[in-house]
Design a protein around this nucleic acid. Structure first.
Length: 589
RNA sequence: GGGGCCGUAGCUCAAUUGGUUAGAGUACCGGACUGUCGAUCCGGUGGUUGCGGGUUCGAGUCCCGUCGGCCUCGCCA
């Protein structure tokens, strides 16, 4: 060991001891006769001083040190002189008076330093990730991540789960996300696929009798990225046998309580609130609503039908909906220009035809450029319906159900943040349950699985599989934290007949089903217990628990939005030879 | 695939309506200084304004293309 202590360790009790510290030069202050160095490692910072008692040689050597040099100091711990203690530093009561210094590795002038006030551009941070990871906030986040994963593993261990690793090289399955493919050298033209999730394997493990399985699993999806999406990400994946949805939810409820307590020192009351998918869409327009504030969507279609205003009446008569939200205090916050921006927002991003708005005046009356198209009494009823208060801004969308959901949910999210309707540090955990089994794909004119093709319908909805698949609800559940989907799971079909029926609805014929996942169908017929599980997005949970707004900050070595690694340059070209071995010819770019 | 924002010194940013030799802070280099902790003071180095083309008497600024980063719709559970 080079060092006797870390840079975050020394206190008054160590005064008088000779210690050895190693670390990086965080900053230096050279006074000629005395040089101060803040030495940093991941545990903290300690001030090191070279003064006259250190000797002129040492003072000179220490004076030559620059930011990010790697140094070893031998010295004596001493109280700082009265009045020079630094309350901003945990080690601020003491300093280390240098006896010897050894430069372990000189650092070139770095492109940026971990301590600098202005955060450098993200491209630069990603290119020199080793420098970025030296920053305190990155170290805090990676530590948080480590603690969350440790808590999760402990929890499942305590509950009798067994950790089983599943393959990374697997087989491409249809449906779901685009696969990352790995060409086979031995079988030219054939490909492995990296797992989108260990879904199929964990079902197989249930059939095999490992009735409580858990894994911290890396997953891959070759889709476009977002602030909260990476091409490779980590799930806490689990599955249980002889359970229904309530059992899985209950198990995760317990985990949430434990995490909240251990990580956030927060008492969470059980059971976590649950809401059906239909209710979530009706009240919030979204399947993962942020329940830290209200501002619910209010249906006004019946009132709209009575209006002179053609946009409203036409929508109502065409079977569309007119729904709105009330932005408390929004009249002052949003000028005409601001409202124009909101309008453009819902039009460009969510395909809304427009955004109708009313300001609530001092006397409670609604004013808008379009208000002349409404009878006074009708305006009053709109006001009542939306529970308008003076100073509010009312925003309404007349459109299809889907567009009204998307546009208003996005508005609600944006306005909630801009109007500061909640404390961003507050945490809210809830469940959304009973998702539809199927979504109708209008382009392809067919039903697609909302979750995946192995999701079990609710028992009471079984009959509707044949008659009205759109109304059929699944035994599916999402864990929602602060308006983000933190995880989702389902009870799976363990009955071969129902599975065939679902495949049929999805347009997967028997032959195709056999070809793609015959192994699972076989397994389901060879003693499959009823089973269900869930997968939690660990990166996202770190993001939420850490109050971060960017998933890259939760991952040590993340990819850019275009799925490249700026540090290594991946993806990169390979030798002609390597391609030849794989039997691959490239056509571009 | 679509929409938007951004790219100026190593870094963070500025540069009036298109107008003189592109500036500041910091970092770096040299000098001074024994109690600093964003040290201070003096001096200095540092620029293909991402790249390519165009408009113009004149482009960091306007236009087109391209590369890169970010946000977002589609996509994705």
């Amino acid at each position: 060991m080079f060092r006797s202590h870390t840079c975050g360790e020394l206190r008054g009790e160590h005064v008088g001891q000779e210690v050895t510290l190693c670390g990086w030069v965080d900053s230096s202050r050279d006074h000629g006769g005395a040089v101060f160095i803040d030495l940093r490692d991941r545990y903290g910072k300690t001030q090191v001083v070279a003064g006259p008692e250190s000797g002129a040689d040492v003072v000179e050597q220490v004076g030559r040190l620059r930011g990010e040099d790697v140094v070893k100091f031998v010295g004596t711990v001493a109280f700082r002189p009265e009045g020079t203690r630094n309350p901003k530093l945990a080690t601020g009561a003491i300093e280390v008076r240098v006896i010897r210094v050894e430069l372990l590795n000189k650092c070139k002038t770095p492109p940026f330093t971990p301590g600098q006030a202005d955060l450098p551009g993200e491209d630069l941070r990603l290119k020199h990730r080793y420098l970025d990871l030296r920053r305190e906030s990155m170290q805090r986040t990676l530590l948080l991540r480590s603690r969350i994963i440790k808590s999760m593993r402990d929890y499942f261990e305590e509950h009798g789960f067994i950790d089983v690793e599943t393959p990374i090289l697997g087989r491409s399955t249809p449906e779901g996300a685009r696969d990352y493919l790995v060409p086979s050298r031995i079988h030219h033209g054939k490909m492995y696929a990296l797992p989108q999730s260990p879904q199929l394997y964990k079902q197989i493990l249930m059939v095999a009798g490992y009735d409580r399985y858990v894994q911290v699993a890396r997953c891959f999806r070759d889709e476009d990225l977002r602030a909260d999406r990476q091409p490779e990400f980590t799930q806490l994946d689990m599955e249980m046998s002889f359970v229904d949805a309530d059992d899985v939810i209950g198990m995760i409820d317990g985990l949430v309580v434990k995490l909240a307590k251990e990580i956030l020192e927060l008492e969470v009351k059980l059971p976590l609130p649950r809401m059906t998918y239909d209710e979530a869409m009706r009240r919030f327009g979204h399947d993962a609503p942020d329940l830290r504030f209200g501002m619910e969507l209010i249906d006004c279609t019946d009132l709209a039908a009575e209006a002179e205003f053609r946009v409203f009446r036409a929508a109502a008569e065409a079977g569309q909906v007119v729904r709105g939200i009330r932005a408390p205090g929004g009249a002052a916050r949003y000028s005409r220009k601001g409202i124009d921006e909101l309008t453009e927002f819902v039009q460009q991003d969510f395909g809304a035809k427009g955004l109708a708005w009313f300001r609530v005046e001092e006397d409670g009356k609604l004013w808008s450029p379009i208000s002349k198209n409404f009878a006074d009494s009708l305006l009053a009823r709109f006001g009542q319906r939306l529970e308008a208060q003076p100073g509010d801004l009312l925003l309404l969308v007349a459109d299809t159900w889907e567009v009204s959901c998307k546009a208003l949910a996005a508005l609600r999210k944006r306005l909630g943040a801009e109007l500061k309707l909640y404390d961003p540090r507050q945490m809210h955990f809830s469940w959304v349950v009973e998702f539809p089994m199927f979504d109708f794909d209008h382009e392809e004119q067919r039903w697609v699985a909302m979750h995946h093709p192995f999701t079990a319908p609710r028992r009471q909805d079984l009959a509707m599989l044949g008659t009205d698949p759109g109304k059929c609800r699944a035994q599916a559940y999402d864990l929602v934290i602060n308006g983000s989907e933190a995880g989702g799971g389902t009870v799976r079909i363990h009955d071969q007949q129902i599975q065939q029926q679902v495949f049929g609805l999805l347009g997967i014929d028997q032959e195709a089903a056999r070809e793609r996942f015959g192994f699972l169908l076989d397994a389901l017929q060879l003693g499959a217990p009823p089973h269900g599980g869930i997968a939690l997005g660990i990166d996202r949970m770190v993001m939420l628990f850490g109050g971060l707004d960017n998933i890259r900050d939760c991952i040590a070595f993340p990819k850019t939005q275009r799925a490249t690694d700026m540090m290594t340059g991946a993806p990169g070209t390979v030798d002609r030879r390597q391609l030849d071995e794989l039997g691959i010819k490239t056509v571009g770019p």
